[in-house]
Simulated scan of single mutants.
Amino acid sequence: MAIDGTTDEAELLAAVTELGTALRELVAASVTTTVGPAGLRAAAARAREVTAALAESRRGLDQLPALDDPAQFRRVFNPVSGVGSALAPPLAIRRVDGGVEAEAVLGPPYEGPPSYVHGGMSALVLDQVLSAAAHAAGLWGMTGRLELDYRRPVPLGTALLVRAAVGDSRGRRVTIAGSIALAEAPDQPLVQASGMWVTPRPAQVEAYFSAITDAAGRPSRPHRPDDTAAVVDGG
């Protein structure tokens, strides 16, 4: 499928993924480097050159990236699961029996207490994975409430398992629960989450998203996902 007259979707996705990977490597290096002031200033100058090159052509905040499809839960620059995001680990979320899950290793860029993951990062990851559970169940909504129970600190640089599953669904509201645990001890949660997702009424969707367009300039509002929502089937 063509993105424009010259760029193939697969080619663009590969390039976005390559840049995202390089930027994540840069971020990780930037928070662990011990080079001196001269090296830091030289790196900053080169980074600004890259920024200027990328800024030559930019989309507006009301236009989705060419590869995005919110109804499919495909957001290439999402700060948790986006392959093109310098902020994302990124998580690859998949369907499993009863819900969704994802593995993650969170490194130094996500540090809070020394050697442990920032609590806000745990909340961000769980918000995303609980949302994915709603999509995998054929539902759509926005976070109405999210409550976290921090049982133990989440270690950096360690394989983690993140899980979520839909509980009760009534009308526009759905309850979802999830957890972060060590991959080697998946049934001993380090952080537990529960929340309620609410599907906006049509008038609210219009008010919130009326200005949003896809890359071709066509209106693109979030809506209930179909059977091809891009939370992949897992094993």
Rank of each mutant, 00 (worst) to 15 (best):
R58I: 05
P90L: 01
R46D: 07
V162G: 03
V129Y: 12
I93H: 07
Y110Q: 03
G82F: 12
R173H: 09
A42L: 11
R41S: 08
R172Q: 03
N78L: 10
A53V: 10
D69C: 06
R163Y: 03
P37L: 14
G167N: 04
V154L: 04
G36K: 11
A88N: 03
R94N: 06
G119H: 09
V162C: 00
A137N: 12
L87H: 12
S85F: 10
G171F: 07
L124Q: 13
A165D: 04
V166L: 12
V125R: 11
D97C: 00
T33M: 08
V162N: 04
A71L: 15
L160A: 08
L146P: 04
S57P: 08
A132L: 10
A159W: 05
A134V: 00
L160H: 14
L126K: 10
N78E: 06
Q72G: 01
G39T: 01
A104N: 11
V162I: 14
A66L: 07
G107K: 07
A45Q: 12
L106E: 09
D168N: 01
T32N: 00
Q63Y: 01
V117W: 06
V129Q: 02
P90M: 02
G144V: 07
G39C: 06
S57V: 15
R151M: 01
A133S: 11
R75T: 10
A92T: 14
A52Y: 00
Q128T: 13
P109R: 12
V83L: 13
P109Q: 09
F73L: 12
L67T: 09
R41K: 13
G107S: 15
E101S: 11
F73S: 04
L146K: 07
S122D: 14
G82M: 11
L148F: 09
A132M: 08
L146Q: 11
G84I: 13
G157N: 15
R94D: 08
V96A: 05
L106S: 07
D68A: 14
L40T: 07
R145D: 11
R46V: 03
S115I: 02
R172K: 00
N78Q: 03
P37E: 15
G157K: 04
P89V: 04
A44F: 11
L126N: 07
S131V: 03
N78I: 02
L156C: 09
M121D: 01
R58T: 15
G82T: 07
G144Q: 01
V129L: 00
L161S: 02
L139P: 07
R170D: 15
P113C: 06
A44H: 15
G138T: 02
A133Q: 08
E49F: 00
G157S: 06
A55L: 12
R59F: 10
S85T: 03
V35W: 12
L61W: 14
D69W: 09
A159D: 12
V96E: 14
A165S: 15
R152L: 11
A88L: 04
P109H: 12
R59L: 12
L40P: 02
